[in-house]
């Protein structure tokens, strides 16, 4: 995203395209986080979370990190509510959300990438819940330690410990299983992550 502030202001003024830019930027990470926390209803929860975000969007004031933190805080609270109510009741889903857009990329590449991401997410989901959440928020969502600590209600030191333990456990499992992440993601696109 080139200009987050401008995009956000446009979205707050009612620019639908600007909101679409925001949505495309943050939806993948949000959906992965929700699939780790509540896989069966991840898509529904994501739609509900975006609806809440849209309702409060005019009152939001902050930078990109603040918006990201706000989004994932809303997601975490929504997941907590979902677990608290224990509801498994069916929810109404709009027909538009069921429309599957045609893929613009190669099917083979998409399958390979889908496999790589799914493999990675499956391994992360096998971690203890706290460690998995810390790793997801810290690495997948790309937030700093302080923001993750605020979202998780922990101290930054605790978040660092959780991330470290989670990463060490992931590394250990990769060695044990002999599973290597497919090199579908070019090295130059990878983000340097310091836990």
């Amino acid at each position: 995203m080139v200009d987050f502030r401008g995009t956000l202001n446009a979205a707050q003024r009612g620019d639908e395209d600007a909101f679409a830019v925001l949505w495309r930027e943050y939806q993948p990470g949000l959906l992965r986080y929700l699939r780790m926390k509540a896989a069966p209803v991840a898509d529904d929860l994501a739609a509900d979370i975006w609806l809440r975000v849209v309702r409060s969007l005019p009152t939001f004031d902050g930078d990109e990190a603040g918006f990201r933190g706000w989004l994932f805080t809303t997601a975490r609270n929504r997941v907590t509510d979902w677990y608290r109510t224990g509801s498994r009741r069916p929810e109404l889903i709009e027909h538009a959300s069921l429309v599957v857009l045609p893929s613009a990329s190669n099917v083979e590449d998409e399958a390979a990438e889908h496999s790589a991401t799914d493999t990675a997410m499956a391994l992360i989901s096998e971690l203890p819940p706290d460690q998995a959440e810390a790793v997801m928020l810290r690495i997948v969502a790309g937030m700093d330690v302080g923001r993750v600590a605020e979202i998780m209600g922990r101290t930054p030191g605790s978040v660092r410990v959780l991330c470290h333990r989670g990463l060490r456990k992931l590394e250990q499992r990769l060695v044990e299983r002999g599973v290597g992440a497919p090199a579908s993601v070019p090295t130059e696109q990878r983000e340097v992550i310091h836990a």
């Binding site: 979205a11 857009l101 990463l167 992440a181 090199a183």
Partner: peptide
Amino acid sequence: GELADLLAAAAGPAQEHELRGEFAARTAYR
């Protein structure tokens, strides 16, 4: 290493199936 590849895959770019709900999101925004 393998862990770096794994994390890069987890934080990789958006996939098509993850962006299917854009129309619904636009409707909700509107």
